[in-house]
Design a binder for these strands. Structure first.
Lengths: 342, 342
DNA sequence: TTGTACGATGATAGCGCTGTCAATTGTCCT
DNA sequence: AGGACAATTGACAGCGCTATCATCGTACAA
């Protein structure tokens, strides 16, 4: 019984090879391309691996093969339900494919994102997935130089770093506002906690709809981090300034939920007195009372597609998708929280 | 102007050293221990780094120094709001300290957890943080052999692998149920989607309270993944079987929220007709209408403490905390969704 | 039988960085 | 002036693994 030479040392490939009476290269092959090794040696190596409880050092492996098996992901928030689903999709695709997913949080700050991208690049990921398209020039440059697939998600841009898969936040925002105008509302407000370009684009969509219907934009927004209770506060602010409002477009479903609760608290009937539409179609929105109208964005699908494209490029024939820009669209979901005006 | 020798090759430390006319070792020191290098050379190296846009290869660094700067984390779910806060706390502490956080998802499955732990160990993390205390024997063994700090969180165990920081889920469940009994309720039900030992322990706490008050346990539970709408379904099931129920302990706040919406839908007044208490104190619970009574668990604090203990061990004097088991307790928060019986 | 081809295995040389220790310089003390 | 000492800097040898190519048999065709 040969034990690892040094009790404090982790078991290495050499230990396995020695024990199986083969060379290190053969042991390595058994683990990576078993079909290249004869059955006899393979069995010997396999049992040595088991007996020594060998765990390959992926660091050394990555260094030698310059194949890190890592995917870098930068998201602006870990707590937001949207990114929960988004990350889940990435894990669902990458983990079974033998990749690791490294996640860094930009906290909705361009500076933090730039730093996160630099940190991530130091890990030599085989691809990067970003939320949003507004990276700093410096970050763009680093990403381009890295020479790896880069997927920008969540929104569309004319000028992607590499690949872009998302939807038009502006159009989606327009659709939400438009839904209220189409129901006959003429005093339509918007509440939001805009931390990123996406919120701002949804806001633009709202403004466009207002312009088309000759309606005065009525806004309440804040710099605070977006939470459910904030929805109540912003609703209060909006109603104080514009009591005639009969329809509200909330920047996202969390705000909408907070607004809904605030209505219940104040005895405002939804949708009879006030119509509310949210954004994102979080799981909770469908079962709220009344159920929340919202705009569904394909966040799981978007991340899944991004992941699959990367897999294709990375280990397939290395061939890239035909189109660099993929618009996955959105879906307006009219539920019970929005109704005809009057 | 010296450009990287080979256009396709990433810039290495040697490139920087050559450009700054120093040895690689000195360049390395400028990056890691600048105070050991004279101001002149330091300036030369710094500008070379900037001009070449050098990004250190952390793989090589980790291999050479056997210091990976990685923390392995296994959580059962990425979407659950509880783990959002938990992961945020870990990032908040580890990222500024120069560590990376690797997260793997066990999907509430012991088998997946075991595999995730093995995968993680292959990354040679400097410490591991786990949710829960019920790792498989095999996983326990690997973790012990790894010789790194291991922190089990979220619940307490008599026999930690290494360090344990959490709370008694059983007592917390008892407190929630007890709250309803104390308000005079005699028909107290419980709904849950028990995927982990923690839900089951909360259930046990409920059963203990029932026993103390000579009350019949009334349960509705499911194997399905826990969602908000599920809370409504389980409430329906419970009320169908036991129409006399006047108080409900929900396994977590998501279920409680779903139950609350279902009550609104059915015209059941909360708390007049039915008292509801949840678990976890998610952000939404405080602003729901009526606001949800719940049990607050220190999930952010728990993760933060775990991270700080690891930091202390890893780079401090390597000294371990006095106690291996830390109970952070919980807090019953009585809000408007629970009221006196009758 | 001899030559050829091919599959299986091993020897070697790094991947890019850091730990270690030796070499060099300048400073301060006796 | 001579030497001890500290502050800098560099040479060298790996960390544990894999890419690459050389080597060794063995099977098969001629």
């Amino acid at each position: 019984m040969t034990l690892p030479r040094n009790k404090s040392r982790r078991v290495t490939l050499d230990d396995v090879a020695t024990r199986a009476r083969v060379s290190a290269v053969t042991a390595s092959r058994v683990l990576r391309k078993p079909e290249m090794v004869s059955a006899g040696l393979r069995a010997r190596v396999d049992s040595a691996v088991r007996e020594l409880a060998y765990i390959p050092n992926q660091l050394a492996s990555a260094l030698a093969s310059s194949h890190t098996g890592r995917i870098g992901v930068i998201v602006p928030s870990l707590t937001n339900g949207v990114f929960g689903d988004y990350l889940r999709a990435l894990h669902d695709v990458f983990i079974p494919a033998g990749f690791q997913v490294l996640v860094l949080n930009s906290h909705y700050l361009a500076g933090r994102e730039e730093k996160a991208i630099a940190t991530m690049l130091g890990q030599f990921p085989e691809a990067m997935i970003l939320a949003g398209v507004d990276q700093t020039p410096q970050a763009r440059k680093s990403l381009q130089q890295a020479g790896i697939p880069v997927v920008q998600t969540m929104e569309m841009t004319e000028d992607p770093i590499d690949i872009n898969i998302g939807l038009s936040q502006r159009e989606a925002g327009y659709a939400a506002a438009r839904h209220l105008f189409d129901l006959g509302h003429r005093h339509v407000g918007q509440i939001s906690a805009p931390h990123d370009a996406r919120s701002r684009q949804r806001l633009e969509g709202y403004l466009q709809a207002c312009a088309e219907f000759y309606a005065t934009p009525m806004l309440a927004s804040t710099e605070e981090p977006c939470t459910v209770p904030l929805g109540g506060e912003l609703l209060t602010e909006l109603l104080t300034r514009w009591p005639k409002v009969t329809g509200i477009f909330c920047g996202n479903d969390n705000l909408a939920l907070g607004a809904l609760f605030e209505c219940q608290r104040r005895g405002i009937r939804v949708p009879h007195d006030l119509s509310i539409i949210g954004f994102n179609d979080l799981e909770v929105s469908a079962c709220a009372y009344p159920s929340l109208s919202t705009v569904a964005v394909p966040r799981y699908e978007m991340a899944r597609r991004a992941a699959e494209i990367i897999l294709e490029i990375t280990r397939g024939t290395g061939h890239r998708p035909k189109q660099r820009r993929i618009d996955l669209g959105f879906r307006l979901i009219a539920r019970d929280s929005t109704g005809k005006a009057g």
